[in-house]
Design a protein around this nucleic acid. Structure first.
Lengths: 150, 150
DNA sequence: ATTTTAAGTTTACATTTGTAAACGGTAATT
DNA sequence: AATTACCGTTTACAAATGTAAACTTAAAAT
């Protein structure tokens, strides 16, 4: 039944997660070194974030002598997909397409990424509707002509 | 020089913005009615959010007798684009493609949206790199073989 | 064995966010 | 004219977030 494994990871915490996703299993010292350089954060700040992530269940710990090693509990891809969903869900359904277009245009993508996207889109095209209705208002979108872009 | 017009709009505030984006110029009563139904928010809650948005400069006011009419200061598309950028920027550059793919797959898009995306992607393909490097760590990604998905 | 270090834990503290009640004033209704 | 109904403004208040110092303890170095 999928008991809401969805942990909320804040923007700052996300940076810590990225280090663990990238390095797999890390000491907090490593995380601190990386983020001191990348984010100009004090070690104390990183400690707090790591602590919160452990409490939230986003990081698992394993004793390693006097210290701990931290390991991500959820995969990066899954976390990104969840975050994407949350992001998209808050937008007007009618305008999601335009926004995805902007994202695609403004992002560096590899040949493979592009190919995969094109394939998926072509597949999607087979069953895509002509229009996606605006869902900004409950019931029908009642915007007067010219007053909105729905 | 683009003096950071970027206003921060929280998730709850975003709902208020959507109403103004959709209806163009609204009384707080209208916003309240819409969101009471859509979000089950009390009128007081909406008042707070509207007030904060005005203070943040995201909504402009115009007197209308005893009350105000509210109007969005920035366009929805621009707000969405900014939010998208912020969202994408926090992700590992190497994995943005996969995430966009997921978004495309999980979202309802119109024929026109899909066509526009395909066109943009084909154009992008001409200059796309073979690989997009991971930028999770400062300097080179030092993940050991097999320990990360970079 | 003593001191230094490094780790984790506790405490701090201002802001932002979500949610809303209370208050005060003006316009509309009785 | 008195009263009611709205509307905007103030106040409330807990939780989350960003940022970090202080404290405590155990291991490492001398």
């Amino acid at each position: 039944m999928e008991v809401s494994t969805a942990v909320n990871i804040s923007a700052a915490e996300w940076q810590v997660m990225r280090v663990t996703w990238t390095l797999g299993q890390v000491s907090s010292q490593t995380v601190s070194e990386v983020l001191a350089k990348k984010m100009a954060w004090k070690a104390a700040t990183v400690k707090t974030l790591v602590g919160r992530l452990v409490k939230k269940g986003a990081l698992a710990t394993e004793r390693d002598g006097k210290r701990y090693l931290y390991r991500p509990v959820i995969s990066e891809q899954q976390a990104m997909d969840t975050a994407s969903q949350v992001f998209i869900d808050q937008l007007c359904a009618h305008k999601v397409g335009k926004t995805l277009l902007k994202m695609v245009q403004d992002t560096t993508l590899s040949q493979a990424d592009i190919a995969a996207l094109v394939t998926a889109l072509q597949e999607k095209q087979k069953t895509a509707p002509t229009e996606v209705a605006c869902n900004c208002l409950p019931g029908d979108c009642q915007c007067a002509a010219g007053e909105c872009n729905c």
